[in-house]
Nucleic acid binder design. Structure first.
Lengths: 155, 155
DNA sequence: CATTGTACCGACCGGATTGCTATGCTATGA
DNA sequence: TCATAGCATAGCAATCCGGTCGGTACAATG
């Protein structure tokens, strides 16, 4: 037993979303016309190949990557890194990023909605999160990666 | 089977956090020196009394509410509504609101942290969420509630 | 043409969490 | 004294999480 005053885990982003982002970022960093095998990515990212398989299946079906089967096969981004936002990737894997269901759409709206003031809190959070993730592209992240690398070398 | 392209539920706030906020807001709306029974709140909020009991226990132990037992007993906010932020309540129930564990503190930081660029995304989300919830008090919500009420009457 | 490396596919699984319900106890005040 | 209220704990079905296992289809290479 640990001594926490709270229950549960709060509003976490699951490994699917995080791994998907790392996977896409890895592909972005190796976006040079060649197909990259999952095995290679799995080794670099230190994530089980089998688990990554499930994740890239979703990315593939959504058309975010293209694949070539057989020996020397692999995956490649279907578009330029600058064409993918973090939001696209997270929403694909995690669904709507809204912190509560009732603000997603009309269908999920509860009858209390009119009197409900807490919903305005959730809406603000939702807007803020979307504003962030929709304005960061894989290109931004690769650039940042190289900046950090340069920093490390100069130590 | 429903036809979703994604897995899981995304970064949701659980009912504990949402109900706790509604409970505290209910107490804020009835903050007049009287102790309010759970039964009353449960009826107004349409949440099971027994479930609310579990939630208010946490709020009570954290000193957010004070209670009087026995017949005619009940709960009251321990401080002015303006003294409680949404963030205090949510963090109490849900733990840290950070979207990933590795940005919470040194202990949970992974070895990849230096090279990791995705962590900067999570940090931005974390900052934005905290900035919102820490700057909304129960007083703000009660005010908003009355505004909405006035709006409804004037239709 | 066989081998090997890859993508692709689906079943399965243990454990944790969620969102409750049920039961019962203890303290209090009318 | 007895109803009312808080307090504590157990149980539970459903879902989700974070994977594993075993296999098939396919393309390049020797």
């Amino acid at each position: 037993m640990d001594e926490r005053s709270y229950w549960g885990e709060g509003m976490r982003i699951s490994t699917k979303g995080r791994y998907a982002l790392r996977l896409m970022l890895d592909l972005a960093l190796h976006y040079n016309g060649e197909f990259i095998s999952l095995k290679e990515i799995a080794e670099r990212q230190e994530i089980s190949t089998k688990y990554l398989e499930q994740i890239i299946t979703v990315l593939n079906r959504a058309g975010f990557v293209k694949s070539v089967r057989g020996a020397q096969g692999g995956y490649m981004l279907s578009k330029e890194p600058s064409e993918f936002t973090v939001g696209m990737i997270l929403r694909l894997m995690e669904g709507d990023l809204a912190p509560v269901r009732c603000i997603e759409d009309e269908e999920n709206k509860c009858e209390r909605a009119e009197q409900c003031v807490t919903v305005e809190v959730w809406k603000k959070i939702d807007e803020a999160v979307n504003d962030i993730v929709d304005n960061i592209t894989l290109r931004d992240l690769t650039e940042r990666y190289y900046e950090k690398g340069a920093l490390n070398y100069s130590i």
